[in-house]
Design a binder for these strands. Structure first.
Length: 202
DNA sequence: AGCACGATTAACT
DNA sequence: GTTAATCGTGCTC
């Protein structure tokens, strides 16, 4: 098996919407000590440029958005609602702020650890939200700025089975209620149709 | 210094 | 369907 199943920096150094689409089917991997937690990426969203009013980078270069302005292939992890962490992958060239939000994965490895961190929740609810998967995978602000493409990184993305267009649902990004058009409705959300959430009834 | 709000979640009516 | 939890960030004064 080629060790090079890690997605490299060139994968992330491309148009953000295309990266978000192609991340479906890839595997998110988290190493903690000798334990491996992984899952298939089934939902992702693109956030791109200062003009995107749904993107944190609309505020320009600040301490918070610094990582998004940096080189591709790094983790942008931020804190919101006073209790939740969110994981993004930085995309496109250094100096251009863009990233892909990880919204859901299907658990593969480390199920015992995931279950312990999502205690009280049924399996379908383990990692079906951006904050849920961060809790399950032990991802917090200490990983902000981490290089996913450097050898030995405790967080990275592995090549998986690509999802054909026929299996992908595309729609507006979630949770941008207060964002002006066209950014509120621009179809930059990608998800594997088989894993549609209940509220997506379609 | 103060304020409104957030790329959410879980529990509740 | 509604709402509390809980605090960093960016904006206004």
């Amino acid at each position: 098996m080629p060790e090079s199943s890690h997605l490299d920096r060139d994968f992330f150094d491309r148009p953000t919407v295309q990266v978000a689409r192609e991340l479906l089917g890839m595997r998110l991997v988290r190493l903690e000590g000798d334990r491996r937690i992984s899952g298939v990426i089934v939902e992702a969203e693109a956030y791109r440029g200062q003009e995107d009013q749904g993107c944190h980078a609309r505020a320009g270069l600040t301490p918070r958005t610094r990582v998004m302005f940096g080189p591709p292939g790094h983790a942008y992890v931020y804190f919101t609602y006073g209790m939740h962490w969110m994981l993004n992958f930085v995309t496109e060239r250094q100096g251009y702020p863009a990233a892909v939000l990880m919204r859901a994965v299907q658990p593969l490895d480390g199920l015992d650890i995931i279950a312990a961190r999502r205690v009280g929740q049924p399996r379908p609810r383990w990692t079906d939200g951006p904050a849920k998967l961060c809790q399950a995978f032990g991802i917090d602000g200490s990983l902000n700025g981490l290089d996913l493409c450097s050898p030995g990184s405790p967080l990275f993305v592995e090549l998986g089975d690509p999802i054909p267009d026929s299996g992908v649902t595309i729609g507006p990004r979630v949770g941008l209620n207060n964002v002006p058009e066209p950014w509120k409705s621009i179809p930059w959300r990608f998800l594997v149709s088989d894993y549609l959430h209940p509220q997506d009834s379609g």
